[in-house]
Amino acid sequence: MIGILALQGDVREHELMLEGLGVSTRQVRKVDELDGLDGLVIPGGESTTIGRLATLYGLMEPLREAIAGGLPTYGTCAGLILLADRLAEGTQPLLGVLDVVVRRNAFGNQNDSFEADLPIHGMIDPFHAVFIRAPWIDSVGDSVEVLASWEGHPIMVRQGHILASAFHPELTKDQRVHHLFVTMTKEI
């Protein structure tokens, strides 16, 4: 069972992707819905909104404990931001479990959003990646492996049981990134 943090964002697209891989999912809006999960997805959305609701409903600390305690977790876009240790600019609630510095809206406004074929470390064919008002990663800690970069900026990383991407595989039909994550949930 993989949980999807469902406070706001493209929850449904992650559900469809995971269900397509034969994995059952559960929407997580309250603390007790974190119990018994094999993995967690933090979807795309507005990180300020998700962070505010997670704080208000007492989810930040339980999420931090669960992820730091080894719960395999995958964050896309807003999910990457929430997982991050620090922001390059601005302050907002962060989980601080992924040793990276993230820059929000790094590529610009919506007119600068794009899709492109992206080489990902460990994948033979490029991945068609969709970036929407996407963040990028300014710097990573020693324990973080950069799986993909765009124009010199890391945009997909892994730190042990935590996976994060600035782009949205859930907006495509390509299951490879989610498959990688599902494999990670079975390694533990």
Binding site: G9, V11, G44, S113, E115, A116, I132, R133
Partner: peptide, 20 residues
Amino acid sequence: MEQATDRVKRGLAEMLKGGV
């Protein structure tokens, strides 16, 4: 790299779901 595709335009709205 492609910009202003349907997927990119509709995609932002997908990210706003569940929001105000």
